[in-house]
Design a protein around this nucleic acid. Structure first.
Lengths: 346, 346
DNA sequence: TTGTAGGCGTTATCAT
DNA sequence: ATGATAACGCCTACAA
């Protein structure tokens, strides 16, 4: 992996490397016409590609931005990544990707890798998890990010501030009104007639999930309904499927709720919702037919029958904002809007 | 973005930077116990994080791998990216992401950026497009990649070799039997009874799409059926939707095919398929009900009713292989297996 | 306008 | 075992 260098170009063109640098990478064309052409030709002839690492070292700006997600294969994150990528390209940055499964330890690793690369900004897209097990790693994560910020690094955070972060500048939050939107969705759904609600959530302590659960409960309360039971599983399709099976087994005709009102599952995200739908369907026809609502409005699910009621989040825009605000150094948090999407029959 | 340096650590610990380097980053613990501890403590105290760029410069190995996709938000690519990411992490590399929409020009840009960063390997995941418009850019792309290879770079390619590439080493191909699998799928589907087949494909010249179309036609021929019409659109849901609408309008009761056999759409990927399903559904109930088959077996679509017949590709494994083979320098191409998935009813 | 020289943060080759 | 010192490839005052 040894490629041609500026010095070689300069040698071929018969100029100093300073001059070569100026014509090839310098912003203003201080050099003269003829010499400039000579250098260009020399560079072209040997396929010179500037060593960005060396440039970064010399200029102390890497042109890199880091993106941390739980799982790039999940549509939620890949859509955010799309926005980040687009914005990064607009800014002439290139993106470093890390996936962490949401574990604070891998998040620390990812941050360390990005800081080591001297990324100009880091976007933390995945929601954090609080709780005793994660407490130490979270504290360390905050410490690492704080130090990065104090050294001039910018971090874009989606949804929730970094827990325990104290740096006074460098953090840029994209606020997502999860709780409010969840409240609205639950209220709308409560309007549709008598239902038995159950909430399908991610692990306790996963902030995004917790926000949405809280919102659902608030919405139900506002509609004069009792608190719903909360069943928890992993925050993805598999979690939705397994808890869906459990629910289905409780819905067999012989164990049907006495009031006969249909069940409505409020899932904390679309992936869980779709898992629940699949599980309920696998249990055969149920009467009354349960309904399922999700959150995020994953694009692929929009065509899914029966239509899933959900909350649309501008995911790509969220990603775009996270990186753009961070790079711009805009101090105040920005908020995005969501939209209740009511779909489906049964 | 100026952080503490090795020299600072060394100064605090009262040793030379060479020694500090050895204890902090050197593989073997040549230094003595006490001095080693002093350095560790010094590093910890100021939150020293080695500058990977400087390390890269000194060792001429960046620890970076590049990934080029058409669209990271598309499940096909995000699943591949997941495999790439996992394999990269196993190798201690970190991944650079670029999205190109499949245009050869952006692909060149991405390659240039990665080469500039001196990536240890580059994975080109998106299928290339051939044709007069792209000819020049493709040639340039091949030239850039060739040079990268000749300088010791590794490139992992998925599906098709780089068009016009001539470097004798450095390329590592993951073969995907698109044509064969398409043939099998078409044959299986032809077995299910009399149908009118139509092929829904991506743009002419998009290699992956072309392979699949060819395979479909071969399968139909093997089943004794005539060549199917090929309708083309963009290689995604939108393309499937728009051509689906066109098909639907040709299927109105008053224009029904005279032989009354149901229509089967062979879509060149799952996204087009799902778009077609949505379009056909939007046209209201049709008799006989058309069927749609896809390709890729996108995970989210597995729960989709009516079940889509499709071809399962081990996408994450493909990504993993592409990067692993490249990094390992394994000279011979590797092939992956696919699997016909028959699902659903009308 | 062009060239010279020093520095960016590490590693690696020497001596010591 | 440790410490100078020279690269690594580039940029940027500063001098010419």
């Amino acid at each position: 992996m040894t490629m041609s260098t500026l010095a070689e170009v300069a040698h071929i063109a018969g100029v100093s490397s300073a001059t070569a640098s100026r014509v090839l990478n310098g912003s203003f064309r201080t050099p003269g016409e003829d010499i400039s052409a000579r250098v260009q030709r020399a560079a072209e002839s040997i396929g010179y590609v500037p060593n960005a690492q060396a440039q970064a070292l010399a200029t102390s700006t890497s042109g890199l931005v880091g993106l941390i997600v739980h799982d790039i294969a999940a549509p939620y994150f890949s859509t955010i990544a799309c926005g980040v990528q687009a914005a990064a390209r607009d800014e002439g940055k290139i993106v470093l990707l890390a996936t962490t499964d949401g574990t604070p330890d891998s998040e620390r690793e990812a941050v360390a890798a990005f800081v080591g690369r001297r990324a100009d900004a880091i976007v933390v897209a995945g929601s954090r998890t609080i709780g005793v097990k994660a407490a130490h790693a979270n504290a360390e994560l905050a410490k690492d990010l704080d130090r990065y910020c104090n050294n001039g690094g910018r971090v874009g955070v989606i949804g929730h501030p970094i827990i325990g972060a104290t740096a006074t500048s460098g953090y840029h939050l994209v606020e997502v009104p999860n709780e409010t939107l969840a409240t609205e969705l639950a209220q709308e759904l409560a309007l549709e007639g008598p239902r038995n609600f159950v909430i399908m959530a991610g692990p306790d302590g996963l902030l995004t999930s917790d926000d949405r659960v809280r919102g659902f409960q608030r919405g139900l309360a506002a509609a004069g309904l009792p608190r719903a039971d909360v069943v928890r599983a992993s925050f993805n399709r598999a979690g939705g499927y397994s808890t869906g099976l459990r629910l289905a087994s409780g819905l067999r005709p012989d164990t049907a709720r006495r009031d006969g009102a249909p069940l409505t599952v409020l899932a904390a995200n679309d992936m869980m919702a779709i898992g629940a739908v699949a599980a309920l369907r696998s249990a055969g026809p149920l009467i009354p037919q349960p309904r399922v609502a999700g959150f995020d409005d994953i694009e692929l699910l929009r065509d899914f029958p029966p239509g899933l009621s959900t909350v649309r989040l501008p995911l790509a825009e969220i990603g775009r904002l996270a990186i753009a605000e961070a790079l711009a150094g805009n101090p105040s948090p920005v908020a995005v809007a969501g939209k209740i999407i009511l779909r489906g029959s049964p």
